[in-house]
Amino acid sequence: MTIQVGLIGYGMSGAVFHAPLIRHVEGMELAAVVSSKPDKVLRDHPGVEVLATSEELFARRDVSLVVVTTPNTLHYPLAKAAIAAGKHVVVEKPFTVTSEEAEELIDLARRQGVLLSVYHNRRWDGDFLTVRRLVESGCLGELSLYESHYDRYRPKVRDRWREWDLPGSGTLYDLGSHLIDQALVLFGPPRRVWADLEAQRPGAKAVDYFHLVLDYGRMKAVLHSGSLVRSPGPRFQIHGERGSFVKYGMDPQEDQLKRGASPADPGYGRDREENHGEISINWNGLSVRGRVETLPGDYASFYEKMAEAIASNRPVPVAPEDARDVIRVIECAIRSDREKKAVAFE
């Protein structure tokens, strides 16, 4: 049985990260899109029904999965309404603006008997899949430092909701949610969170720089993003008692999807050879240095796993409790920056 999917929102996220992947996955069909841009939707996806309101979508009995890709402040009310209508729901990251909202949605989905997941797609970045494999293998020994950067050069402040002075706006919620989720996947909840947050660019009203330290005892996880970085350093640095791994460059899938590529295309999700990470380890008394081929990235895995969860009662690809914990870390970071001290993650 084909899962009929309704998409709310057709901005960059809906058009690039969701609609193409939904249509790619066997057993799913993009049935309807709620958007104020019908011409754009129909140009990309002829035959898909374009609706004016989310209420029209919730009333459709054939649609069993609703995907919310709206500005962050609308995630909670739209997800709540969709769950109340008996729909399975995927919410674009960040899950919600507050952990209290996240808890309410988790509880409501449980009571309604529907599935709820959050699109933390960068769990399927090729570089992160490679890092995860290395960490889980133990080849670097006991870790002392994990450092993850998402830097870019965007000196001009744009007039868009992500950069307005609104709850849930700014790079801590936008990019930070990716880095935090990846750290929690690898290491679980931290003991404490320390953060420095700034709006560095002239005219910036929302956070555009963050530096977080997640305290895991001896091991520290440093998560960093700047908006005035013309020449980025490593994307990942991991250091352990037996060796180090350093990786430059970003996962290619976002740029590929923006160009209209499909996950079925040759070379999709493949990293360039010059961006393969470098490993240096002590192995059995020998010093070994070399390149680690990046595993292929695969954002489509999220929707493949979501389809399996709906059809076969399998686990959702991202547990909503995991996404709630990302918001809890963000809340700790905001408090840490305000109080100028490390905050316990409780």
Rank of each mutant, 00 (worst) to 15 (best):
Q4A: 13
L7S: 11
V66A: 15
A81C: 04
R289E: 14
V318Y: 05
R338I: 10
L228P: 03
R335H: 02
Q200W: 12
Q182L: 00
G27P: 10
W194G: 08
W194P: 00
P263C: 00
G249Y: 13
K87D: 05
A261E: 12
P315I: 11
E346H: 00
V288P: 07
H211T: 01
Q112R: 14
Q182N: 14
L42Y: 09
E308Q: 14
S148E: 09
G86H: 07
G188T: 04
G267F: 01
R235D: 00
A342R: 13
H75M: 06
A344H: 04
Y216R: 07
R132A: 10
R291Q: 08
E331R: 02
D265V: 08
K40R: 11
L57R: 03
N275A: 01
P20V: 06
R160E: 14
V5N: 05
R335P: 01
L78A: 04
F245H: 13
F345P: 01
P94H: 04
V329M: 12
V343M: 13
D322P: 02
E331A: 08
A31N: 11
A300R: 05
W194F: 12
R335G: 03
G14M: 06
T73V: 14
S280H: 01
G249H: 10
Y173S: 07
G113K: 09
P234H: 05
H276R: 15
P189I: 01
V118M: 14
F58Q: 06
H276F: 14
Y153F: 13
L197Y: 03
G86Q: 12
N275S: 08
V246W: 05
G269M: 01
H276Q: 03
S177I: 01
A204V: 00
P77W: 11
E92R: 11
L212Y: 12
A109P: 04
Y303G: 00
Y76Q: 05
D44F: 02
G267K: 08
S262V: 09
S301Y: 13
V343N: 08
N121Q: 11
R154T: 12
R122Q: 13
T294A: 08
T73N: 02
P263L: 03
P38H: 10
E274W: 07
P189Q: 12
N282M: 12
I281Q: 03
R270K: 01
N313L: 01
L172T: 14
V185T: 13
E142A: 07
H120R: 04
F187E: 03
A195W: 10
R338A: 15
E100K: 04
S336T: 04
V50M: 08
K220R: 08
R230T: 01
K258S: 00
Y146C: 03
E56N: 01
L212K: 10
P20R: 13
K40V: 13
V67W: 12
Y173P: 05
V118K: 06
